[in-house]
Design a binder for these strands. Structure first.
Lengths: 247, 247
DNA sequence: TGCCTAACTAACCGGACGGTTAGCAAACCG
DNA sequence: CGGTTTGCTAACCGTCCGGTTAGTTAGGCA
């Protein structure tokens, strides 16, 4: 027996979650009806209630997933980054990569007010912990000289804002490939906080590596770039997809 | 007769709009009921329909207001800015200042999918025009040397993301005053795109000018900062308000 | 004073949506 | 094969919400 029954259940459950996450991201939680989610999956509304007890738990599961990805990314970045700045940028990079891969979209961090009080409290606790950790990366970076002196709270807000805005304009099926988005965002964040910002950035996201070597290796991100141009790599790759990356 | 009847009507209408904008911003459009808006204003739901034909037109009016502010800010910045970077940063600065003053909150640019098709089309047209103009500020800046070579589209997305995230953590009644927020954001954006980024930023937003001189003069923003620190100005001002600037 | 209109309320309507229930068909298990 | 569980559907229920309507109050104006 290849897939046991519980396996199938788990897989379908994840499929429901992905569809819900995509819809919540696209139209918003309250504007998405259970009927719509079900119809997108080719089932009826009642079927969804075999996998989630109610609509709100679906939203809570989205947030859970996102926060898990966030902390996993941070752990990985903590090990691999060699200073505060690298850890900060890598965290964001791994995070967006993971969310784009696992859910078909990326972030969901809006709509937190739609959660039940207990779920909301849990999310707030986790998110605060995450943001505090990001801020400490900044402080760490200021101390080790990799980050420019700045207000850590504000810097983190600006970066998170740019992150959470991504779903509004980026579609994995668009002209920019996920890896390019990722590299470009990292370059931006890098420049925002670096004590020695790069003197030039990719003048076209299409010029950034689409999937070169080990995903998101430090070198491919152009970290430690300083004066050297990082553009002109992988020129003219992946320009075929025409489905608009925007609207 | 001090206020004519039409004046009163207009004032009350604006009051309705402010309340609606605040609620939409805080809980989201679909999560806000007409009853709630009315109750916050001390009237009944039906009263609202004397000022707006339906709920959706309320949302459309919010977007209209925001886009008007955006274009007005851009026009002002176009005249006052001396190069592409200054025009870009000033646009954002004036924009957030105007929205915080007029509506009690700032931006609303999410929830565009909740608009009626025709309103949505109008918004999309306006927003595209605005974003294209911002991108051309970037290109202009790259040409005149004030902006680092980069992908204009991505840079604008990052900046807009940071802007539109502001309502999630900033409250005008919080510990950070609007002017401080404004100066700090400008400093961040400045650094993000400048061809010669400042070597250090305010390490605490509280250190930034709260309301010094003509609002948002270029000098007070630390534009053209380069190597000189702009912190330590107006130290220890406005630290009294205790209402949390977050949550 | 008396009329008219603007401003507002109380009560109601229809529809949509979250969630439930009953039942059916297939798969699993002895 | 027979009984039980699982996965799902069709139909339904209660509630909430956007919007309407009828009616009341108050101010402007002759």
């Amino acid at each position: 027996m290849f897939p046991t029954r519980e396996d199938v259940h788990g897989i379908k459950r994840l499929e429901v979650l992905r569809e819900a996450a995509a819809s919540f991201n696209f139209k918003g939680y309250h504007a998405t009806s259970m009927n719509e989610i079900a119809a997108s999956l080719g089932v009826t509304k009642a079927a969804l209630y075999h996998y989630f007890p109610n609509k709100n738990s679906l939203l809570a599961a989205c947030f859970d997933h996102a926060m898990d990805a966030a902390f996993a990314s941070m752990e990985r970045a903590r090990k691999e980054g060699r200073n505060g700045r690298e850890r900060l940028v890598l965290t964001m990079s791994y995070y967006v990569a993971q969310l784009i891969n696992e859910l078909n979209c990326c972030v969901v961090l809006m709509e937190d007010k739609a959660l039940e009080p207990e779920d909301q409290a849990k999310l707030v606790r986790q998110r605060d912990r995450f943001e505090r950790a990001l801020r400490s990366f900044i402080r760490e970076g200021i101390d080790d000289g990799s980050v420019v002196p700045c207000d850590p709270k504000l810097a983190v807000f600006v970066i998170l804002g740019a992150m959470n805005w991504v779903p509004k304009w980026f579609k994995p099926s668009g002209a920019w490939k996920p890896d390019q988005l990722n590299a470009a965002l990292a370059q931006m964040f890098e420049r925002l906080v670096s004590s020695s910002p790069v003197a030039a950035m990719a003048s076209d996201v299409g010029e950034l590596p689409s999937s070169a070597g080990p995903p998101l290796s430090l070198s491919s991100l152009g970290l430690r770039g300083h004066g050297a141009r990082v553009t002109k790599i992988a020129k003219k790759t992946d320009k075929k997809v025409k489905v608009g990356g925007r609207r």
